[in-house]
Amino acid sequence: MDSEKLIVALLLIAIVFSVITLAITMTTKVVVNPKLPFSETTNTASVVLDIVKNPAKETP
């Protein structure tokens, strides 16, 4: 095979490889998962007491 034919053959091979690569990248789905949303939670508790007057303190 003379060098001109070899060059043509090599370029054809390169074109085929490029087309295959392009086809793969175009048809493959790349899914990027979004970052999970900011997550926050709250809960409450109560503190209670009743204050009454001490009768002993009312004594003058």
Binding site: F38, S39, E40, T41, T42, N43, T44, A45, S46, V47, V48, L49, D50, I51, V52, K53, N54, K57
Partner: peptide
């Protein structure tokens, strides 16, 4: 000794992932 009445407070906890 000079405080009187029914008393209440709410405590809130917030957790952030």
């Amino acid at each position: 000794e000079d405080a009187l009445g029914t008393k209440g407070a709410v405590i809130t906890a917030t957790g952030t992932a």
